[in-house]
Amino acid sequence: MTNDTLKELYETILDRKSNKQEGSYTCYLFDKGLDKILKKVGEECSETIIAAKNGDNSETVLEISDLIYHLFVMMVDQGIAVEDVMAELDKRSNKTGNLKQFHQVDKNT
């Protein structure tokens, strides 16, 4: 999978929101609304955790793929561009040596 694959998936989902197609699962999710989309994101997240906990890599890959798809549906529904997420990931990849700062605890709160 390449960055292009993710962008193509996002673009397909974006197109389904604008151009409804009968029998499309993506269109079904958009028609049902945010609550249904979020429910599916939660389900797929749980299924990914269970597959990983069971040590079944092939099942985990399937569940991760489902999770990414449903996250993209949520992103499109919320108007979040894939480029924005990729830019944030790029920004984070440049951070090193911040583990100590991340784990500091404010003992006054």
Rank of each mutant, 00 (worst) to 15 (best):
G33S: 12
Q78R: 15
K107T: 05
F72T: 01
N3W: 10
I80R: 07
E88M: 11
T5A: 14
D106N: 14
N98H: 12
M1W: 05
R16T: 00
N19L: 00
I50K: 13
Y69G: 01
K100Y: 08
V105C: 09
K32R: 12
M1P: 03
E8S: 10
D31N: 15
N57H: 08
K53A: 10
T12N: 13
T96G: 11
T2E: 12
K17D: 09
K17Q: 15
N94D: 10
S18H: 07
L67M: 06
Y10G: 01
L6K: 06
F72Q: 11
T12Q: 14
L89C: 01
K39R: 13
D35N: 13
N94H: 13
N54M: 11
K53F: 07
D56E: 11
K91I: 00
F72A: 03
S65L: 03
K39F: 09
Y28S: 10
E44S: 08
S65A: 15
K100C: 05
D84I: 06
D15Y: 08
G79L: 04
D77M: 01
S18E: 13
C45M: 12
K39Y: 12
G79T: 04
D66G: 08
D15N: 14
Q104G: 04
H103T: 08
L34E: 15
D35P: 02
I80F: 01
L29C: 11
D31M: 07
A51G: 09
I50S: 13
M86I: 14
G33V: 02
Y69V: 02
D77E: 15
L9E: 09
A52G: 09
V76E: 09
L62D: 14
G97D: 03
K107G: 05
K40H: 09
S46K: 08
K40W: 01
N54P: 03
V73D: 04
L89T: 06
I50A: 14
A87C: 03
L34A: 11
E88I: 00
D31R: 07
L6C: 05
L62M: 10
